[in-house]
């Protein structure tokens, strides 16, 4: 009797109800973020390794502490964009197309503003410090450069999702693309927080 009951349960996929556990795409994106997150962890670990191996001050003698204001504004902008992303994602989960389009649009524009400020920041810093100056400069630009590359990838992904959202591709039940873009974007934002704390705040300690 138990066999029959089991077989019934197992052979009837619950396609009618929404899936109970995370989909393949969700897992794929989480694993991508996990491995890319490890990449940044290794980069920042290298930064601190070189810092603690350096005798004397940090940044090394003759190099000024990184300026806080612009980087702070950038971090705030990017953090704000993640809230808009969240609004878009939770909007489409309730079937609200307007929330999706507006949320994605705002998050994208804030991301774009961040990219503009990042370029400005790079130009300003490069007046005194370049990757060829020393290991400090190399690490500074490698970390921020790697983050910018991921940011651009995130922006491209968001643009793609945005265009599809305009055409009404996503619905309350079908919005895996939005979910995946959101996971990636939160990752980009989280890395910026780690960079701000590591590269901008800790040299002042």
């Amino acid at each position: 009797m138990t066999t029959v009951a089991y077989a019934r349960r197992a052979t009837e996929p619950t396609t009618e109800a929404a899936p109970r556990s995370a989909s393949n795409g969700w897992w794929g994106m989480v694993l991508l973020v996990a491995t890319e997150g490890t990449l940044f962890a290794v980069l920042l670990a290298s930064y601190f390794y070189v810092r603690f191996k350096t005798s004397g001050g940090w940044p090394p003698d003759g190099i000024a502490d990184p300026k806080l204001l612009r980087a702070f504004v950038m971090t705030v902008l990017l953090t704000a964009s993640s809230f808009f992303m969240y609004a878009a994602e939770s909007g489409i989960r309730r079937g609200r197309q307007r929330a999706l389009v507006l949320g994605l649009g705002a998050a994208f524009l804030l991301g774009l503003a961040f990219l503009g400020l990042q370029i400005w920041e790079t130009v300003v810093v490069a007046r005194e410090l370049t990757p060829r100056t020393d290991a400090y400069g190399s690490l500074f630009f490698t970390v921020t450069g790697a983050h910018s590359a991921h940011l651009v990838a995130g922006l491209l992904l968001m643009a793609w999702i945005q265009v599809r959202a305009w055409f009404g591709v996503y619905s309350q039940r079908r919005h895996l693309g939005v979910q995946m873009a959101a996971i990636y974007w939160y990752f980009v934002v989280a890395v910026q927080l780690a960079i701000f704390v590591s590269l901008y705040l800790t040299p002042r300690i």
């Binding site: 491995t35 890319e36 490890t38 990449l39 962890a41 290794v42 980069l43 290298s46 390794y49 070189v50 191996k53 350096t54 090394p60 990757p131 060829r132 020393d134 290991a135 400090y136 400069g137 190399s138 690490l139 490698t142």
Partner: peptide, 28 residues
Amino acid sequence: PSLTVANTMLELERNWGFHFFQPAHGGD
């Protein structure tokens, strides 16, 4: 990722003038 980072650093150092591993330039 650790292998990727190490080899990327080495390439940047060899061909782009970055410094990660040379004590003379603050590396290790």
